[in-house]
Amino acid sequence: MHANTFDRFEHRHSLIHRLDPRVKTVITLLFIVANVLLPDGAWLAFLAAWAFLLLLTVLADLPLFYAAKRSFIVLPFTLAAITVMFTLPGQPLLSWQMGSRQMMITDAGLLRFVSIVIRSWLSIQMAILLTAVTQLPDLLHALQHLRVPRILVAIISFMYRYLFVLADEAMRLLRAREARSARGWAGKSGGTIWWRARVAGHMVGQLMLRSLERSDRVYNAMLARGYDGRLLTLNPHRMQPGDWLAGVLAAAVIAGIQLLGRLPPI
């Protein structure tokens, strides 16, 4: 088993993959911001935004519903929004008796709820697409150029590198626990909750000490190659005319969708 299975980058040589990571990052953010700004019930605009997203997916040489298939991670969170269906004032659509209480779904509430879910669903698909078409190191270069402080970029970059190493270590610890813990026939775990927490806490402590020791060794390895506190990198990216063009085009499309969403209904 190897932890790199959770790396979401899809290796392709498409037009989109070759774009400068800055363009991709800015366009993604712009798309999500515009999305959040779309009014409730702007169905045409929602549809247009999705079409734009699918177009990008095709241009990126990915399966048409690549992002949609991976977007269900937002589902649990939609529970948080369900209440607006009942509490937003409006014409009752559906009402029923529950106990002594009248339950009522209003039209405005339903509209708000569906709009929230769609906006969030579109946003996450765009984020999934960004991750699929941009290697994280390239994204980090983009962040650096977009003025994210060097130290933060460096921390994220170290984190990305050791994520996989430490996740492997955590998996080994979990497996060792699994191998030694007998379970009853009903799948009941043994021990009191305190004991179980202690075991988990000691595993976390163990992992923490190993990580601290590793950070010492990594620091030594950096020193051995002349590290003096400066975090130097080469920038492999240059904005080409094509990058500018793609950026402007995408921004125009996003603006168009926004306009579509704000036109008065005919």
């Binding site: 130290i151 460096a154 921390i155 994220i156 970059s157 170290f158 984190m159 990305y160 590198r161 050791y162 994520l163 190493v165 430490l166 996740a167 923490m208 990580s211 601290l212 590793r214 950070s215 990594v218 620091y219 950096m222 975090l231």
Partner: peptide, 9 residues
């Protein structure tokens, strides 16, 4: 930087 990065991981 390496300390915080590895501890974040």
């Amino acid at each position: 930087a390496p300390l915080a990065g590895i501890m974040a991981a």
